[in-house]
Every structure is written in structure tokens, then in C-alpha cells.
């Protein structure tokens, strides 16, 4: 529709202003709803770690990765590195709170566990922590979702959710993925 007069132009601008206003309003309401009803907020606890010596750190050295039960709390530690997750498979019990802790020694990676609320960036120099309760048993895919280099699309690992009764940590509290 061609604008014939200045009035037409003004009306068109107003119409579009209303569309933009409604869009911005809807997004603001979605943010408010997420914050007020779903209690989604920015991460609050900043934890740092020296990225050069992650492999020597007490917490993230190779022997301490994976799932461990500590004081009744299930803690899973994973290092995201170019181009794999260590370990490649972690086992967690269903219907129990699990604390997942991630860090990276090299570049920015991202982690999500399909079908769960676990979704975070993994930034070198920081520890990313997520709490979750896994309801469904089975193998869940955990891909890297932040471009990290040429091998990014081959970078994924498995979260194996087992029924609580089948979750049997050893004397040290560690639980490993059994080879299928």
C-alpha cells in the first residue's frame, strides 16, 4: 500500500510502533515471569580455578573426575576440553539431587544434558555448577554447545541415569559407568 499523504506515513509509523511496543512488552513479561514465577536468576556464586593447572588441582585431577557421593551428596565432576569431556560417561542416580561441577582448561565450552535443566557455559578459569534431579532413567546425551574448535561437533559425552537401587558407589563413594 503506497503512502499517499503525510498522514498515511504517520499512521503506518504508529502501527509499527504498537507492534514493536507489544513485542518488547511480551519479552519483558516473559523475563518477569521467568524471574518471579520460575525463580530463574543469574548465577550468583563465582568460583575461580587456575586453568593452567586444572589437571593438577585437588578437585579436577583425572582420578577425581566422575561421580562421587560425599556426605550423602552426589557430586559429578567433568572437565570439558578440546575435544572431549573427561570422563566420557558419568553415572548418576535417578530421583536424587545431583550437583554437577564443570571446568575447562583451554577454551570456552558449553554443556547441556538433553531433556533436563542442565545447561551452562564452561569458561576456563571458573567452575560452573548446576544442581539437578534426573527423573528418567537411561542414557542422556551431553553435547558441547559452545563452538570450541574444529572438533566441536564430535564433542559429546553420556550421562547414564540409573534407578536409585542400581546406583552402587564403591567404598570411596565413587561410581563409574559400566561398559555396555
Amino acid at each position: 500500500m503506497a503512502a499517499r499523504t503525510e498522514q498515511d506515513v504517520v499512521r503506518s509509523e504508529l502501527r509499527w510502533s504498537i507492534v514493536v511496543g507489544l513485542t518488547v512488552g511480551a519479552i519483558s513479561l516473559a523475563i518477569l515471569w521467568a524471574g518471579l514465577v520460575r525463580f530463574i536468576n543469574p548465577p550468583s556464586n563465582i568460583e575461580t580455578i587456575d586453568p593452567n593447572s586444572v589437571h593438577l588441582s585437588a578437585e579436577f585431577n583425572e582420578a577425581n573426575l566422575g561421580t562421587r557421593v560425599e556426605n550423602g551428596q552426589v557430586v559429578t565432576r567433568v572437565v570439558a576440553t578440546q575435544f572431549s569431556f573427561a570422563p566420557q560417561c558419568v553415572v548418576v542416580p535417578a530421583n536424587r539431587q545431583v550437583t554437577l561441577r564443570f571446568t575447562s582448561p583451554d577454551v570456552i565450552h558449553g554443556i547441556l544434558v538433553t531433556g533436563t535443566n542442565v545447561n551452562t557455559m564452561v569458561v576456563p578459569g571458573y567452575v560452573a555448577q548446576v544442581h539437578s534431579v534426573f527423573r528418567k532413567t537411561g542414557d542422556l546425551l551431553m553435547p558441547c554447545h559452545e563452538y570450541c574448535g574444529l572438533g566441536h561437533s564430535q564433542m559429546w559425552a553420556t550421562v547414564r541415569v540409573v534407578p536409585e537401587d542400581d546406583f552402587k558407589p564403591d567404598a570411596d563413594g565413587r561410581a563409574l559407568c559400566e561398559k555396555p
Binding site: 568460583e47 593452567n52 585431577n61 561441577r101
Partner: peptide, 23 residues
């Protein structure tokens, strides 16, 4: 805001695989 809280930590008995630090 809240200071960084102590998070669950544990020390492993394993020996690190390599001692190289790319400082």
C-alpha cells in the same frame, strides 16, 4: 552480594597424569 560459598570438594588420592603447566 553473598561471598563465594565453599562448595563440595574432595581430594583425590590419584597422582596427576602429567605435571606440565603451560604457564
Amino acid at each position: 552480594g553473598s561471598p563465594a560459598a565453599q562448595q563440595p570438594r574432595s581430594a583425590a588420592s590419584g597422582v596427576p597424569v602429567s605435571n606440565v603447566i603451560w604457564s
